[in-house]
Design a protein around this nucleic acid. Structure first.
Length: 569
RNA sequence: CGGGACGUAGCGCAGUUUGGUAGCGCGCAGCGUUCGGGACGCUGAGGUCGCGGGUUCAAAUCCCGCCGUCCCGACCA
């Protein structure tokens, strides 16, 4: 490729809209351009990098025995209504209507398409297992698109779906994908962690996330200092404290706490630490009132509450709910909860006694509230968000919270989709069985952003060679000297013969501009030919990722570039 | 959806407070000098100042409405 023809106009300054490094650099280096919030055009350089990610994934998926297909992006609403996701995906799904007023959606993921498809084709246990995948653009009307490609409304995703006759088969298919994912992210050169995760709106049971480490990552994960536990913060657990010893139980006393609705307010007024207070959050779970109890210094993890109450849709009480049920916001306590309400306490509440909590009366709290004597707990569950420094549920070690970008997520769905969609096969004994399904996603466009986030410096992008749009760039520094241009062209030709995908920067600009652009775009190897090097009969080489510089006789320069590339990260 | 900021040439910005001929840098085009880490000089093109309405002799500037973009938040009683 000739830089003089390449559709890539680099920017000296980052557009004001870009905040994070990956977004700024991908714009500056002419990989992407924005069309609207969360939607980007992929320029030639960006598309080449995206395709390299795609090639790696396709190779590993094919090697794992999965088969590629292509499903539609425009989808009918009906199957989505059957699985309930037309509702649960809600506003996040792009919805539209055709000219006959039929409801359609743009695919955010395709369980509702692939499941009936397989049921219609592979209806016998003899056909199983089968794993189908596609690499396709996905659409999600994100609450807040941000950070360029990191959270877009249109993004490229590899989604795979496995179908097995039983749970053992599912586990085996899952294991195969797990290992394929390790190879994919390893080959992409990413620094990543595998964590236990929350299934989110996809549903299902066992699942893992593959997280690329990044300071700007939106996803928090918990890891044990001893390395035996790692989990998404939405799913993470901490070890549960010992139950409080029986013993001194204060009387429950109502106290006057005017204008002190918050935990901090009350703690300050009474001069007691927040963990002495009992936080009582009210939720509506499909019409039923649920009181969730956690210690005052803790936060409720709503995902965990939702899982505990599955399949009821869980939402926090709003002002209307408070009014309708006669609760006073800011002064809620679990005492005298009605029979039809559910009292759900985090297990850590067992570790406390003599709680300070709301008195269910404006401007009043109580002290000395105790489980059983003063309020009942219907269920003990883990519903708490893990904090930095909590104890590891495996070994008791210290838990640390880190930031990352989720680049892959794999799920054991079981029959979550096959049952409602009545997708069944005939088993060996002649009975109809729902498929045991798994689904497996990788965000390709997000990998590009995550890699840009992990591999950059002041000068620009520093791709691992597996992801760079080209392998090398040849830079003739003196375009006015025929001998320089000739030599550079010859080198460029030699590289092609050696199967190196190179760019020759034949633009009529000064050397400084070429160097700056080469660093910005992130060609793994730079080969410089100029007046100076011609005199000494050598070419100057630089490895972008390490900054390492070297020389090679002109006759061996192409060969030297190949070797440097082979040795580069 | 709530809060905040912003919207002036392809990009980065000034001008808005105090209404009066729309500017700077980069980039772009032409000519010349340069030529190994974002060169220099001269000349030039490029803007319905986000959109609509209002106030005014006069609006980028003041007022109202809308749109767009970015940031923070969107469970913590």
């Amino acid at each position: 490729m000739r830089a003089s023809k390449l559709f890539a106009r680099t920017l000296r300054e980052a557009p004001a809209e870009a905040e994070v490094a990956s977004h700024q650099l991908l714009l500056r280096a002419a990989y992407i351009r924005k069309l609207m919030a969360g939607v980007y055009t992929w320029l030639p350089l960006g598309l080449r990098t995206l395709r390299r990610v795609e090639a790696i994934i396709r190779e590993e998926m094919d090697a794992s025995g999965a088969q590629e297909l292509r499903m539609p992006i425009v989808l009918p609403a009906e199957p989505w209504k059957i699985t309930g996701r037309w509702q649960t995906y809600g506003q996040e799904m792009f919805k539209l209507k055709d000219r006959h007023d039929r409801e359609l959606g743009l695919g955010p993921t395709q369980e509702e398409v692939v499941t009936p498809l397989v049921a219609g084709e592979f209806g016998s246990y003899r056909d199983l297992p089968v794993n189908l995948y596609q690499i396709e653009w996905k659409y999600r009307d994100e609450l807040r698109p941000r950070f360029g490609l990191l959270r877009g409304r249109e993004f490229l995703m590899k989604d795979a779906y496995s179908f097995d006759r039983d749970v053992d088969g599912l586990r085996s298919s899952y294991r195969t994908m797990f290992e394929a994912y390790e190879r994919v992210f390893g080959r992409c050169g990413l620094d990543y962690r595998i964590v236990e995760a929350d299934p989110g709106s996809i549903g299902g049971d066992v699942n893992h996330e593959f997280m690329a480490l990044a300071a700007v990552g939106e996803d928090l994960f918990v890891s044990c200092e001893n390395g035996d536990y790692a989990a998404d913060v939405e799913a993470a657990q901490a070890s549960t404290p010992e139950p409080a010893p029986p013993g001194d139980r204060e009387e429950m006393v109502e106290i006057f706490t005017p204008g002190r609705p918050g935990i901090q307010d009350v703690a300050e007024l009474l001069g007691r630490p927040a963990p002495d207070l009992l936080k009582c959050m009210l939720y509506d779970a499909g019409g039923r009132t649920v009181a969730v109890l956690v210690p005052g210094d803790r936060e409720v993890n709503q995902n965990k509450v939702a899982r505990a109450l599955w399949p009821a849709p869980v939402r926090l009480f709003d002002d209307a709910d408070f009014a309708a049920h006669g609760f006073v916001k800011g002064y809620v306590g679990p005492q005298k909860m009605s029979e039809d309400a559910l009292v759900l306490a985090d297990r850590s509440v067992r570790g406390g006694a003599n709680w300070v909590t709301g008195a269910n009366r404006i401007d009043h709290h109580v002290t000395g509230a105790n489980v059983e004597r003063d309020f009942r707990v219907d269920r003990w569950e883990d519903v708490m968000r893990v904090n930095e420094g909590d104890s590891c549920p495996r070994c008791g070690g210290r838990l640390h919270i880190g930031r990352s970008i989720v680049v892959g997520h794999i799920y054991q769905l079981g029959t979550r989709y096959s049952k409602p969609l009545k997708a069944t096969f005939v088993d060996e004994d002649g009975t109809e069985q729902p498929y045991q399904m798994g689904c497996y996603g990788i965000g390709l466009s997000r990998i590009v952003a995550a890699a840009a986030e992990q591999f950059n410096d002041e000068a620009g992008l520093r791709w691992p060679k597996a992801l760079a749009p080209y392998d090398a760039v040849v830079i003739p520094t003196n375009m006015d000297q025929a001998a320089v241009v000739e030599t550079a062209e010859r080198l460029y030709g030699e590289l092609a013969e050696l199967d190196i995908d190179a760019v020759i920067d034949d633009r009529e600009v000064t050397a400084g501009v070429k160097f700056a652009d080469a660093d910005l775009i992130g060609y793994p190897v730079q080969i410089v030919v100029g007046k100076r090097s011609l005199q000494s009969g050598t070419a100057d080489l630089k490895v972008r990722s390490t900054g390492q510089r070297s020389h090679a006789p002109l006759a061996q320069a192409a060969r030297a570039a190949v070797d440097l590339l082979a040795g580069a990260p």
